[in-house]
Amino acid sequence: MEFEIWQIGILIVAAFLGGFIDAIAGGGGLICLPALMAVGIPVHVALATNKLQGSFGTFASTITFTKKGYINFKDIYLGIIFTFLGTVLGVGLVLFINDKFLKFIIPFLLIGIVFYTIFSPNLGEIQKEAKMNKNTFFVIFGFVLGFYDGFFGPGTGSFWTFSLMGILGYTMKNAVANTKVLNFTSNIAALIVFTFAGEILWKIGILMGIAQMLGSYIGSNLVIKKDVKFIKTLFLAMVVVTILKIFLDIFKNS
């Protein structure tokens, strides 16, 4: 595909903003994916290219958070393994299973996250005792959320951040940081499958990826500097936007 300069400019700006938002609260795909489709890229190609450029952003955030000591890979290695496996399966099945049920149920789960977060004012502010064995958590949630991200996707980062805080007792900053590692894992897994399928626009994806890295670097450093209330507010805002986006898609396709 050939693109005008202004179209490339829109995609680069969208990637920067997507990386910035995604590093803080998740939901960057809600900016980047519509931008890719808005310039005339077919849906399946847009999805594949979005995974490529998103991989750059989550990689940049992972490096930043790792350097600052927010990520312990010994704690989450099972999450990485099972997220990878779940994502590969999810992408592999996406063309064969009807996703209407997921599109209907996911907004209500996200609404539950909003209300639980609002009415749990101390959620994510201090480290708490885990409610589940850490290895068991990462095996189950890694596979399930990996599969979900490969199969459908919207809200994956929100589910990870919320689960890490609510079940493992992570602080919000640590939850956001570890979410980036797991998002990067699912992006790479999906990218491998899409590469074999030949669906990626590499030049556009790499250009957007560079902009995404810059936005992610700035956003992840902002997470480290800002207090929890700022991060939580933006997190809730992106969850609400995700809910509205999914409901809008349902009504448009009904």
Score class of each variant (00 low, 15 high):
4 E>Y: 13
6 W>R: 11
7 Q>V: 10
7 Q>K: 09
9 G>V: 12
10 I>K: 12
14 A>F: 04
14 A>Y: 06
15 A>T: 07
15 A>M: 11
16 F>M: 02
20 F>H: 02
21 I>R: 01
33 L>A: 02
35 A>D: 09
38 A>Q: 12
44 H>I: 11
54 G>Y: 00
58 T>S: 15
60 A>V: 03
67 K>C: 09
68 K>W: 07
69 G>R: 10
70 Y>D: 09
73 F>K: 08
82 F>E: 03
88 V>W: 08
98 N>A: 01
100 K>E: 13
110 L>N: 00
117 T>I: 04
119 F>G: 05
122 N>C: 08
123 L>I: 14
125 E>I: 14
125 E>L: 12
127 Q>I: 12
128 K>N: 14
145 L>Y: 06
146 G>Y: 02
157 G>L: 05
173 K>W: 02
175 A>W: 04
178 N>S: 14
182 L>T: 03
183 N>G: 06
183 N>T: 08
188 I>W: 00
193 V>W: 09
194 F>P: 05
196 F>N: 10
200 I>H: 01
205 G>P: 00
206 I>K: 07
207 L>N: 05
211 A>P: 01
218 I>G: 04
219 G>C: 07
225 K>R: 15
230 F>Y: 15
243 I>P: 08
247 F>Y: 14
251 F>E: 10
251 F>L: 11
253 N>I: 11
